[in-house]
Structure formats: structure tokens, C-alpha cells
Amino acid sequence: MTRYIIRRLLQFIPLLFLISVLLFTLLQIIPGGPTAAYANNPEITSEDLARLEQRLGVNAPLPVQYGKWLGNVLRGDWGYSTVTQRPVLREIADRLPNTIYLMGIAFVVALLIAIPMGLIAALRQYSIFDTLTTTIVFAGQSIPIFWLGLVLIIVFHSTLKNPLTGAPLLPGDGMSTLGAPFSIGDYLAHLILPVTMLALYQTAQLTRFMRASMLDVIHQDFIRTAHAKGLKERVVVVRHAFKNAALPLVTILALDLPGLFNGAVFTETIFSWPGMGRLFIERAFLFDYPVLMAILMINAALILFFNLVADVVYALVDPRIRYA
């Protein structure tokens, strides 16, 4: 197992290298490039601009620039933002935890709803609950989540008011009330709408897989055997069926992560959440290429990493799978 993990990790290196070459090239051939942010600034003359291009080395051939970037990154230097002049790592360190906080909570919420819902729907196939679940799942997978976010704001922020204070029922932007003293209640209130928005698609996806996987398992022979042995329904469901049905879910959990990232971009944009997705959107308009490159590489690495986690966890929970 350890050898398998090491081999897979080693495979990451050429893959990440290839991805970084492609993404770097992509960013460099966008006209405008890193000095675009200054091009329209009246206080910067064309001589200044030329000096800046010289200093940034953007006139060097592409492979030279890539080599320089790679060398710096390998030494832990991701460069400086062309917008704020701050180190890229500092910019990201400011935002990444907020994204993880939002995504983590949405993920747990999705799991807590999806597992029981998929389980019950499968156990009562064709019941009203099942039909309802399937319909909700379908809707949840088809709804444009950015629109869901806007509707949530219209309903719970601008239409419904708190009957006592007349203020909006739920906050619609940021992670906490600006300037207010720290309170857990305030933080929780700010989580409700963004988490609802982000968790919905995930919940739909997981419920669907949980239901399908459970349906698969409960029609198998060993479940009939368990019933025939006279085991209690609860024991059969939890100890026998659920344990086996949850296996494929592990893979889905990890492979769905890129989807959660995409969702986070929209959620952060709509709810002014100071996370990494919003950082990317802001800086994409300003061609802040060192920051964009870092965000792209972090995302690509995470996607690859969770692919590996999916395989490893799958092997750990299912003894039938052996990786040489």
C-alpha cells in the first residue's frame, strides 16, 4: 500500500509539470499580460512601463520565463501580486482558510442530509418519500446555483425581515458583521445562506449515489441471508447493507471536490465571501498573473491529491481491492 501511494505521488510530478507548463503558457499568451494593470494609469509613462517590463522579465522568451518561475516556485517563492505588490503566498494565505471554512461546513451539511435521505429513499423504494427525494435530487442537480444564491438573498435578505428589529432576516454578505464585536451567533447567521447555496448541489449528488448504491446492495444475496438468519432489520440495514453501500460513496466524495470548488467561486462572489474563488475572479479582470497561476496550481494539485485519496480510502475500506 505504502509503495502504491509513493508511486502514485511520483506520478503527480510529471502531471503537475505538464499542467503548469500549459497553464503558464496560457497566462502568458493573453495579450495585456502582467503590465496591463498599469497600462491605463496616467501616472505611469511608457518609459516606466518599459522599465517595469524589463524588471519583470516579461520580454524574455516563454521557456526562459517559465524556467525562472519554476525555479522560484521550487524555492517557495511564488512572486508578487501585480495589483497589491504583496507576496502571492500572503495573498492566498489570507483567503484560503475562508474558502476551506465555507466548503468544509457545506460538505458536512451535505453529508448529514444526503446519507439518511438516500438510505431511507432506497429502503422505501417507490414510496412517496422516495419519489419526493428523487424529484428533489433532480431539481438540485439542475438548478443554476448562482441563481439559487440570488433567490436566497431576495427572499431571506431583502424580502423577509426580522419581526423584532425590522432588519433583514438573514445577513447576505460577508463572514460577519463588519465592526461588530465577535459573536458566534453572528458568524453562524452569516453561514446559513452561503452554506445552503453551496451544499444543495452536493447534497443532491450524494443523495442520488447513496440511494443507487443502497438499492444495489439490498437486493444482494448476503442481505437475504442476513434477513433469513433472523437478524433485526436495524442490524441488517446498518451493519450489513449500509457498510457496503457507503463504499462507492467514498470515491464520489473525493471526486466531487472540483465541483465544490466551482460552487465556491459562485458562492463567494454572490455573498462577498473573502475566499480564494472570489480572489481569482477579481484578479482575472486585472490580469494579476502570479496570483492566478498560484490559485490554478493549488487547485490542480488538490484535484490530483483527492483523486489519490479516493483510491487509497477505497482500498482501505474494501479489502477486496488490492493495489500492487
Partner: peptide, 20 residues
């Protein structure tokens, strides 16, 4: 490689590129 691309981000960059 294509699957490991952060899809939305790359979509944004490539549309920007093609427009320019």
C-alpha cells in the same frame, strides 16, 4: 491532464484569451 484542470478557472482564462 484535462480532468485535473480547475475547469471554471481555465474556462475564464481561455475565454479572456480568445476575446483578446
Amino acid at each position: 491532464v484535462f480532468l485535473a484542470f480547475p475547469r471554471l478557472f481555465v474556462l475564464i482564462l481561455v475565454t479572456t484569451l480568445l476575446r483578446q
